[in-house]
């Protein structure tokens, strides 16, 4: 953005973290702001590629969907572990052709997929855009490709592209 504040989001996050770890007082606010601004200038000196957020308003919606999905799959996986294995439970790999190309979006998608119990990000080919995930319970009839593409990828593409 500007020369004074190269990474406003990073600066705000660092300041918030400083205040959470110490206490909410005026003195800590000043020290934290100094540290956060200094750190964001250090970050600018590293010259990383700048992620672009097109529609950050959708981030809370994504967060809500992900938290509920993780809760649901926690229950599913716990049931698989406690209830013993069904004979027909098949674990396996699924290949998914992705249209999302934004690096930050892909990183976010990988965190979502892996932190959900039952699915794990295994490999991604940047040249073809095909993603390989491992699924714990390949239920008959479940369409993992359209699940990942419609539920997460569409929203991520709206946010980042």
């Amino acid at each position: 953005m500007s020369r004074a504040l190269p990474y406003p989001l990073l600066t705000a996050a660092l300041l918030l973290m400083w205040l959470l770890l110490t206490s909410f007082s005026t003195g800590q606010l000043l020290v934290g702001a100094a540290v956060a601004i200094g750190a964001s200038h250090a970050m600018a000196a590293l010259q990383p590629s700048k992620p672009r957020l097109r529609r950050w308003q959708l981030l809370p919606k994504l967060l809500g969907i992900v938290v509920l999905d993780i809760l649901q799959s926690n229950i599913d996986v716990a049931r698989i572990i406690i209830g013993g294995d069904r004979r027909d439970r098949v674990a396996g790999f699924v290949a998914i052709p992705l249209d999302l190309r934004d690096k930050t979006g892909l990183a976010l998608l990988s965190c979502i997929v892996t932190s959900t119990p039952g699915t794990a990000w295994v490999e991604y080919a940047p040249d073809t855009g095909v993603l390989l995930i491992h699924v714990l319970d390949l239920v008959e009839g479940a369409d993992w490709v359209s699940l990942i593409k419609n539920r997460y990828e569409a929203l991520l593409m709206e946010i980042f592209e």
Partner: peptide, 12 residues
């Protein structure tokens, strides 16, 4: 590699 489509896919 992908299984065919269904209605409401279970997650987990």
């Amino acid at each position: 590699a992908a299984p065919e489509s269904g209605d409401e896919p279970p997650r987990g």
